[in-house]
Nucleic acid binder design. Sequence first.
DNA 1: ATTAATTTTTTCGAAGATCAAATTAAATAA
DNA 2: TTATTTAATTTGATCTTCGAAAAAATTAAT
Lengths: 406, 406
Amino acid sequence: MMAALARATHGLEQREVGRQQVFDTIRTAGRIARIDIARETSVSPATVTAITSELLAAGLIEEIVPEGDREGAKRGRPRVALKIRGSAHLMAGLKISDRSATVILVDFEGNTIGEYDEPLPGPVMSPEELVTLVGQALDGACGAAGRSRSEISGVGLGLSGQIDAARNFVHWSPSLDARNVHLGQMLAAALPFPFFMDNDANLVAMAEQLFGEGRNTSDFIVITIEQGVGMGIVIDNQIYRGERGCGAEFGHTKVQLDGALCRCGQRGCLEAYVGDYALLREANIRSGALPEEDLSLLYARARGGDAMAQSILDRAGRMFAMGLANIINIFDPALLILSGEQMAFDFLYSDEVLARVRASVVQVDAALPEIRIHKWGDLMWAKGAAAYAMEGVTAQTIKGLAANEA
Amino acid sequence: MMAALARATHGLEQREVGRQQVFDTIRTAGRIARIDIARETSVSPATVTAITSELLAAGLIEEIVPEGDREGAKRGRPRVALKIRGSAHLMAGLKISDRSATVILVDFEGNTIGEYDEPLPGPVMSPEELVTLVGQALDGACGAAGRSRSEISGVGLGLSGQIDAARNFVHWSPSLDARNVHLGQMLAAALPFPFFMDNDANLVAMAEQLFGEGRNTSDFIVITIEQGVGMGIVIDNQIYRGERGCGAEFGHTKVQLDGALCRCGQRGCLEAYVGDYALLREANIRSGALPEEDLSLLYARARGGDAMAQSILDRAGRMFAMGLANIINIFDPALLILSGEQMAFDFLYSDEVLARVRASVVQVDAALPEIRIHKWGDLMWAKGAAAYAMEGVTAQTIKGLAANEA
DNA sequence: ATTAATTTTTTCGAAGATCAAATTAAATAA
DNA sequence: TTATTTAATTTGATCTTCGAAAAAATTAAT
């Protein structure tokens, strides 16, 4: 039997919470004066002074030299803004897709330091091959950016599939030829980095939280589209992962009883209606070319008036809308972010689809949840991985802060 | 812009958290010694002593006089168990159904003190009528139990529909002829009780948390069936309600594109396939008798081999399984509780349906979420309402505890 | 019986942490 | 220059938790 009912915060841990809170406030704000940190967090200025001097001493944050222009300030001692010290840590984010391993190096503020793309021999690897590949990709990224391996404080790794982030365990991933892989242990044994891995959609949610549309919202949901459809759930500023770490399987929610066959072997999954392979299957296009090219062909046909192509995209849109409406009906979120890097899936983000979503939601006389479409660059996934690593390294660093001042 | 990133616990609030934690531990355990509270909560024995003496002084808990039989004890000072003091508060739970207002009176331990049922003139009322009715029902319950109104410390009120529990506001309820009612304000103006209201499914979830299957689980989901289909989501020991308080609308998630017409005016809602009216509609049974009787007729026909009746129930079961599978795919909960009072819906809780659910969930090589069927007595709903009131009164009492010892 | 051992609970003092109030710092306005 | 204003820091009081020691209440052993 376990209790752990209320999250307790006794004694030594109390300051840790304060440090994390102040740090997060600074990161969310970008640059902010102590007095405003106090106001936002309802912590007294005295305590903010104490905490910020710890963080300053540890090199996690820095003061901004006041510029000449103090806009709007009347009188009084000028506020000195604080910000995250970018050079405090170098983080790496790594996303494995079916084609390549994409690496991004970011500083502790989230600024991109370097990018790198390592092509894969094939879409599916053995765990050992993946470990090797991760090492190569990181070396490649360091080389390209003129940094040394040893500078990296943490590596975030994003994989499709069912990942148990708490245990760095892969239940299943389309990138791996084995199930139930303790990938975290293998990586730790082979490479000298602290690794943080998770399902790729969760990582995008974290990127939205740290750098994107979710910066000022404590509860929101992110939907991603790539090969499949993914979801990241943020509740009370935390990624919700479920018991075994394999929740948020939006792509495999069923939208049709005994419906279309999905790659997962079941029928009626949303992915079996909106995934690229599903569209091509229905259109009966199999040129052998890259999927994107085939998809472009399908879009072109639809725009050109081809009734069959239009019908395929239309149904996909309707199914997608139905899935989104279900998510809203279940979560009633403040914010739903449709996060994507490709224009390819524009038809799923169309006004028509959104209108359908709004019409399929339980109607009350209160503003509907906000639906925001966020189109990132092509490094979105890798940046999410970096964001996750940042969070992990930050938590560890803050925990380890000794209060040793002279 | 608001931050409030980490839940802060500074200064004076810290003890409050401790008190709540200790209190919850005692309630969950039923009876437990101080030393075990310390072990379970990771709070030091010294602090447990301090907190429990506060709670004892406030009369919220009491020591159990040690009985003769100390099982298994070897030596040493005998542990003295603590428990919630039942007589500390009298709580009322009130559930409005389409036929009657059911009241339950419980003591602070959750023991039933009295029950009462006030028939309704009709299924739909004006807000004013509902307020009057609530007063009558409470008076009736007090009279039947030989208690006085003034003894009641708090009243929980459960309504179907979209309720914003944080604001005691009714977006919509099938029991009311008006939308957007500030029912909490009206009740507070007319009656001298502290009211706590919420969607009825959330209240059942709370009853499961305090008294039922969810007592030892921090994250679980409750599905209820009554007229409609309801859901309560417990994440990190808290009911998740969504931004506007109208999430968890499981009954109106869509299971079929452009499907059957639902009472809500939309198409393809789960409720439009498994609700009693939906079954009768499809069976084309309209005897004018009570729905239960018509339903019994339908079940009898199905058991008797009537293919049409079997087909109707079969499809309802398949749709229900699909909905449940979606919930599991989204939440990956540790525990899913199918909570019900009526045997009428047995076909939805059948092994066949559960097998279908398990087959429709994303497959990983880890134990599936536990699905537990919990059949309560007919006061389940009212008890949930009482549980909610208990939680509210407990939190307020604990907050107001002055640390005044001599 | 008396003493020792054991286990639970309480007491006491030290170590932190937060906060209000006072103080210091750094600017503008008069 | 001097007053005013605002930000940041310092100081002292209050609270809280915890570890260690003490007290309490038993059983086991002699």
